[in-house]
Design a protein around this nucleic acid. Structure first.
Lengths: 239, 239
DNA sequence: CGGCGTGTTGATCTACTTCAATGATTGTGG
DNA sequence: CCACAATCATTGAAGTAGATCAACACGCCG
């Protein structure tokens, strides 16, 4: 059920079979949610973390002027809210961008297995550090990259992340997100997302259509976006 | 020497005297650096973490087109690079924005004390989670807030963070940073930083002059910036 | 069938950038 | 102690990336 997470963590560091079994055993149930469902509401204490099994999840903040900014996009295999394990309450909402399956991991079980397997705790810590590295990369995108570069960078990031859990191949990947949701991720207007998608298509770098990203020129995309996958921490890459 | 860090961590969670002693004892030396010195260079393995004792430190990325974007601003009491403890190599540079004193904490000592005091390890993890929460808030600023709001928000954040280590009072704080460095933090041009500083002064919210931030109207500033200090995690606030 | 979400495009507007020039301050070598 | 360069703040003028407004096409669902 959460095998994608195991696959992902193995990219970060070697896992013992007992560690893997402990993680698998920490899941109490798998829930299904409709698109738009709010999984965690801000400043509400939580007692469990969630792992995305299928679908897309994002964390976002709604500002008083009505604008919404996404801060994180979680894909299958990601711990959505490992933050809540140490922070208990968070400062924003988390919701489903598509229909989702989510595995529930109660905090007390997590506490138990990280105490029993300190190394596993270290790997989970590393996993949250990589989330932070992704945040920093988004800061760079939002602060210093143009709209085309930003979109190109996101397409690159998603390619590498989805590939690491077997959801992308060299040709591209399924990416069931609306242009409106993209605009909230990228900090730009929906209209401009539309034009930017068009520009990438006309430059023959990426075609994004019908929830599908097809990459025409990986090299061109990487060059445009100034993309370096180092921050994603997958140094134990197979291939 | 790193007493400001202890003060800060106490805001996050209760610390035992032995835990505090262990942390203090983990420091091997205090070094002094000139403004501009690069403390950690990208993709270079490190064997120690640093704690800021005095001065300002930032992590940043230089893009191929010459732009520089800061991702994090560390103040006295902050672990600059706890990331390196789990990640070993990082994806960007870290440098001094002012003359700095920095305490060195070798990884092996950190490993030792987090194994010996698991709860301390949890608090340090929490501390990196709060760094991540700050990253997310910056994402919101860069993605969805206007230039004035962004600057106002930074002044608010620094007020709360500096106050938590005794470096700010209700009147304001010392903030020895150039407008150029501010522009790299805020993802806008230096010229526009200058005009924005002026605007905040004319609106009688903040006067930033001669490395000093004087807050005229905290309420006005908070309203303008949409600032909510919740993300800074200081729920054990004294006052 | 009508309405809503989504994508698409044109026209206009504006928040910010870039370019350029000028003081003020500080450090530095003769 | 002064001349000089270097850094930093400041302001005006012109340019532009992207926002906003508005209209329409399409598919989907109740």
């Amino acid at each position: 059920m959460i095998d994608k997470m195991i696959v992902k963590l193995r990219r970060y560091d070697k896992l013992d079979p007992e560690e893997e079994a402990a993680l698998l055993g920490a899941v109490t149930e798998i829930k299904k949610f409709a698109r738009g469902t709010v999984l965690v509401r801000r400043q509400t204490p939580t007692r469990a973390c969630e792992v995305v099994v299928s679908g897309l999840v994002h964390r976002y903040r709604d500002l008083s002027d009505g604008r919404r900014q996404s801060m994180e996009l979680s894909i299958p295999g990601d711990f959505v809210d490992l933050h809540s394990f140490t922070m208990k309450e968070i400062d924003h909402d988390i919701a489903c961008l598509t229909q989702c399956q989510v595995a529930i991991v109660p905090h007390d079980r997590l506490e138990q297995i990280t105490t029993q397997f300190p190394h596993l705790g270290r790997v989970l810590w590393l996993s949250t550090m990589i989330d932070a590295a992704i945040h920093r990369e988004w800061i760079v995108s939002l602060g210093a990259r143009s709209a085309v570069q930003r979109l190109a960078h996101l397409f690159c990031e998603m390619a590498v992340r989805l590939e690491s859990v077997g959801l992308a191949d060299s040709d591209g990947y399924r990416f069931p997100i609306t242009q409106n949701a993209l605009s909230e991720l990228l900090g730009m207007s929906m209209v401009h997302v539309n034009r930017t998608v068009k520009e990438l298509r006309e430059r023959e770098l990426v075609v994004f259509r019908e929830q599908q990203v097809r990459i025409q020129s990986w090299e061109g995309l990487v060059r445009l976006a100034d993309f370096d996958p180092f921050y994603l921490g997958m140094h134990r890459r197979p291939r």
